[in-house]
Design a protein around this nucleic acid. Structure first.
Lengths: 204, 204
DNA sequence: CCTTGTGAAGTGGTTCACAGCT
DNA sequence: AGCTGTGAACCACTTCACAAGG
């Protein structure tokens, strides 16, 4: 099943005006930008939580999606790399709201170590493994320069991290059981450039 | 065709050690993390740029991918929203390297307007439309809070922007001809949480 | 002989359309 | 009567396997 779509549905439900306590697949699909049939297939995978002739109870559906995504617990995470991006991520309110808690921020630069970012003290990357282990983080964000990312990923994996969100442009080599999602700004822009280019010269 | 994969191949080619002037589909596929057959299909779409029995000439292939993605020109872009993330993006070196040039940075906060970010002066969002128009930007990055994103997107579209990279968590409503790519940190983390959750309770 | 390029076969995901419930 | 849940049909993408060509 396409997990990212569940996340989109969840956001749509959370952005609904307060009074709305039920919604049809047509309306929710419209909001989420997918076809009604696809939405119903996706939701039916969670179980039969709709009511025929009526629609979906928004509160109930929200809970079921959060449960499916594993958002009913709080997941501790660490952020490695306290450059501009790392700091932006550390400050990001959305994390806590969605059930993620930043339990450590790290950098290799001795000048940065000891600084405070959003209430946390920046620790040296050497302290990464024991900190991850002790604080039970199995989720990590890599926001280092590309050269450093692979070594960080290996340290994280060795310390028990099984899910990595990678903002470095490198493709990481990790053990089989570790999941990596890569967010690459250059790739995103290049895809958009492709469309601009296409629009400018449709025939080739 | 899957455009993001071309971007990945391009990066792999660019990360190759200097001496390497040819590469086989097996080796490049390994680096890119795809199957050799898929890589060959993808590349054959660009034309017959490989040499049977030998492989691909790295320099030539790099150029062909860049040409296909529209990276042989330089694309002016604007960034709206100079919070932590917007600033991080404005400082990001990768943009210029890959053929993107930031020609304007904007914020709605009067306290921020006039500050310098990476050599550019922050302008008020009211100045967005004429600036986009005059500087020929058809590509924009939205890094505003979610509440502001829709209005910014509409202003951008009206001013001639046809490709938007959206970091706000909102789903944007835009005219048919405008392409939007959404990067949502919460969604990425939620997908990773799903895998953690699965690993913890495989049977449900 | 080695590696690409590509039809053919296979796979997974999307849409259709209607039966089944409320 | 209305809307969900879902098998069946459909479509796009992936892999296979081998012919074509340096």
């Amino acid at each position: 099943m396409a997990v990212p779509r569940l996340s989109v549905y969840l956001r749509c439900l959370e952005d609904l005006p307060p009074g709305v306590d039920r919604i049809s697949s047509d309306d929710l699909a419209e909001l989420a930008g997918v076809s009604p049939a696809k939405l119903r297939k996706d939701l039916s995978y969670l179980g039969s939580y709709g009511v025929r002739g009526v629609g979906y109870r928004t509160e109930h559906l929200r809970y079921q999606i959060r449960r499916e995504l594993g958002l009913t617990k709080e997941w501790p995470l660490v952020i490695v790399g306290m450059g501009n991006l790392g700091r932006a991520l550390a400050h990001y309110e959305g994390f806590r709201q969605q059930g993620f808690r930043v339990v450590g921020v790290f950098d290799s630069d001795p000048d940065k170590v000891g600084d405070r970012v959003d209430g946390l003290v920046i620790e040296p990357v050497g302290a990464l493994a024991p900190a991850v282990w002790e604080r039970g983080a199995r989720l990590a964000v890599i926001a280092t320069p590309p050269e450093a990312a692979q070594a960080v990923a290996e340290a994280l994996a060795a310390a028990g991290v099984t899910s990595i969100l990678n903002f470095a442009s490198t493709l990481l080599r990790v053990p089989e059981h570790v999941h990596v999602r890569r967010v690459d700004f250059s790739t995103e822009l290049q895809v958009l450039a492709f469309y601009l280019h296409q629009a400018a010269a449709p025939a080739g």
